[in-house]
């Protein structure tokens, strides 16, 4: 408000830039949170544990990749989903992978990147991003293990 008084022209520009982001939030966040709530109330813990828990192996990680790829929306919409999964017994490795995939890999986004930056650039970046995500998830998982052992 104070800012508005000092530079009304710039304040309008800020509002203009923010408008699309606010709209995006109002469009995506409510249904995502409703689905999280339904997930929380209906899906039994042992189902998630079986599909994405510590013992789920490559299947659980694949599910994390598919979930992250097909969903759209800003990263902050993935936080409540990842948290719900974690609370229901999904492994930290899979939740970390889910978050990173949600952030980095989207099919429409890859197509868009190919169109603008070229197939070579986009596909090489994608090919490097997948192992990077697995590495990040593994590292996060290891750090967590260490702390729980120390405490």
């Amino acid at each position: 408000m104070l800012f508005w008084a000092i530079r009304p022209d710039k304040a309008l520009a800020v509002l203009f830039v923010s408008k699309d982001y606010l709209l995006e939030m109002l469009c995506i966040l409510p249904p995502v949170l409703i689905l999280c709530g339904l997930f929380d109330a209906w899906v039994p813990k042992r189902t998630v544990e079986r599909l994405m828990g510590e013992a789920s192996g490559i299947k659980g990680t694949s599910i994390a990749f598919v979930l992250g790829t097909v969903a759209m929306g800003p990263l902050y919409a993935a936080f409540p989903i990842g948290k719900s999964l974690l609370d229901k017994g999904a492994s930290l490795y899979n939740v970390a992978a889910f978050l990173c995939v949600w952030a980095a890999i989207k099919i429409p986004m890859v197509l868009f990147e190919i169109k603008f930056l070229g197939a070579e650039f986009a596909l090489l970046r994608l090919a490097l991003t997948v192992p990077a995500i697995l590495f990040i998830a593994a590292l996060l998982n290891t750090f967590r293990m260490n702390t729980s052992r120390i405490q």
């Binding site: 949170l33 409703i34 999280c36 709530g37 929380d40 109330a41 209906w42």
Partner: peptide
Amino acid sequence: TRKALQFFRRAFLSL
């Protein structure tokens, strides 16, 4: 369903 809606309300207000 009420539980789910409560979850929604809590999460939305905090986010």
